[in-house]
């Protein structure tokens, strides 16, 4: 079974400042797959996804999305992106609906909104269980709710490929479970997913393949490292989602 390749990196090198962060990585994600990028802090996993979406330029190698070189990609509506959470709040108040509506710009001409767009926004909010918070300002949300809003914004695009950078970081257990359910629904509907994770956590059953980075190189590409557990990953921050509430993450790794 050789499904169409949706994301392809070949020999990609990337730098931040003058520091090489990716030292020639190969990565292919085929249609319908759920691929997790794992690795310690500083291993280059975030840079790898940021290279895929063109935020960090590749200094060497090839980046293709949907079989098209990134540079030539025009149809961005095929892609939904969830950035690593900083904050969705800008210098001016904005409601959950206003933030999520930004995602629809990929589907509208000149930003004109119709009923279909408003429906898509509402559906996306319902999917992440934030339908009842639609008119709340984003500043009133918890970290996990905030993350759900950013995922709804990507889902509002109605993408065939979902790229997520650490969607579970700093997310409370209830939100983690909602996100896992949301993702399961998307995957069942045929969405391809590439996500950066610090640990497999509640998403583990969904992951088809794990790609482990270390110092900007791929050190593992295959089934999720279940046998050894994620504990074996260098610099792994150990966070137990099932630990009693409020348990502080215990840094066990070299870089943690």
């Amino acid at each position: 079974m050789t499904a169409e390749t949706v994301v392809e990196l070949r020999g990609v090198r990337a730098e931040l400042g003058a520091r090489p962060v990716l030292r020639g990585i190969d990565l292919a994600v085929r249609r319908g797959e759920v691929v997790a990028l794992l690795g310690a802090n500083g291993s280059g996993k975030s840079t790898a996804v940021r290279t895929v979406i063109g935020q960090v330029p590749a200094v060497a190698g090839a980046v293709e999305l949907f079989g098209t070189p990134l540079r030539a990609l025009r149809d961005w509506a095929r892609l939904g992106y969830v950035p690593q959470r900083t904050t969705a709040a800008g210098g001016v108040p904005a409601t959950v609906t206003e933030i999520v509506s930004s995602g629809r710009l990929a589907r509208t001409r000149f930003g004109r909104f119709g009923r279909a767009d408003r429906d898509a926004v509402r559906r996306a909010l319902d999917l992440v269980g934030m339908g009842d918070r639609a008119h709340d300002p984003v500043t009133a949300l918890s970290g996990g709710q905030h993350q759900r809003v950013l995922i709804a914004r990507a889902l509002a695009v109605e993408p065939e490929l979902l790229i997520m950078d650490e969607p579970m970081a700093g997310v409370d257990l209830a939100s983690q479970e909602i996100l896992a359910t949301t993702l399961r629904t998307q995957v069942a509907a045929g969405t391809t997913v590439l996500l950066v994770l610090h640990e497999l956590g509640p998403l583990e059953p969904l992951i088809d393949r794990a790609v482990v980075l270390r110092d900007g190189c791929v050190t593992h590409d295959g089934p999720p490292p279940r046998a050894l557990g994620q504990h074996a990953l260098p610099g792994h921050d150990h966070v137990h989602p099932h630990a009693p509430g409020g348990a502080a993450p215990i840094g066990t790794g070299l870089l943690g």
Partner: peptide, 9 residues
């Protein structure tokens, strides 16, 4: 969110 806007085309 400049980065998200760019990825939205």
């Amino acid at each position: 969110d400049e980065e998200f806007a760019r990825v939205t085309g």
